[in-house]
Computed example of a mutant assay.
Amino acid sequence: MKAKIFVLSAIVFGIISLNLLTKQETFYHPEFAEKQTSASFGISTAYAYPPGVGILTNSPNCLSCHANNGPWKDDANTIIDILDKDTKKSLKQNDGTFLIEAKKGEPKTVLTVVGSKKSNAIPASYRNAWLYIDPTTIGTNTLSKFAPNWEVNLQMSCRLVGDNLKGYEDADITSLPMTIQPLENAKDAEISLQVMLTKGEATKNNAHDGLTGSYFERKVKLKIK
Rank of each mutant, 00 (worst) to 15 (best):
T45I: 13
V53S: 15
I82D: 03
K199C: 07
A189F: 01
I191L: 05
K219L: 10
Q24A: 14
A186I: 06
A202N: 06
S192E: 04
T112F: 14
T37H: 04
I79C: 04
D172H: 09
E201W: 13
G200K: 05
K204G: 08
T112R: 02
T97M: 08
R218P: 10
K221S: 11
P148H: 07
I173R: 15
L21C: 09
S59G: 04
T174V: 15
T212E: 15
N205I: 07
I79L: 14
A121I: 05
L154M: 13
R218M: 03
A67S: 15
C158P: 01
N206M: 02
E169P: 01
K104A: 08
G200L: 08
A171I: 00
A48H: 10
L8T: 04
G115F: 06
A129V: 02
I122T: 15
I82M: 07
D75E: 06
E106I: 09
P30W: 00
Q36I: 08
F13W: 12
M156L: 14
A10F: 05
I224V: 09
D172P: 07
N205R: 12
K103Q: 15
A102Q: 09
A202K: 10
D188I: 02
Q181N: 11
L211A: 10
K199L: 07
K103N: 15
P107R: 08
Q155F: 06
A129K: 10
I100R: 14
F41E: 09
T97W: 02
A46C: 10
E217D: 02
T137R: 15
C65V: 01
D86S: 13
A102I: 04
A147N: 00
S17I: 00
N205Q: 13
E190H: 03
H29M: 05
T137Q: 14
A10T: 12
I191A: 02
L99D: 10
F13L: 15
T212L: 15
A48V: 11
A33K: 08
N206T: 02
H208M: 11
K4N: 04
N164D: 14
S44H: 10
N120T: 00
L111N: 14
T203S: 12
S40F: 08
Y49L: 07
Y49A: 01
Q194L: 08
E190D: 11
T37Y: 03
G96I: 05
G42Y: 05
K199S: 14
K166F: 04
S214L: 06
H29V: 03
E25S: 08
N205T: 13
T137D: 03
V12Y: 11
L63D: 07
F6K: 05
T198N: 09
P148G: 07
I55T: 10
S9D: 02
A102M: 12
S40M: 14
D75I: 04
L18K: 08
P30A: 00
G139K: 07
S38F: 09
K2C: 01
Q93D: 07
E217F: 05
R218L: 03
G96D: 04
I191Y: 05
V195W: 00
D75W: 00
K204H: 14
K73R: 14
Y126K: 15
D172G: 05
F27S: 04
E31A: 01
Q24L: 12
L21E: 07
G139N: 06
L18F: 14
N120C: 00
K92D: 06
V110P: 05
R218G: 09
D74N: 15
D163H: 10
G139M: 00
G14H: 03
V152S: 09
E31Y: 01
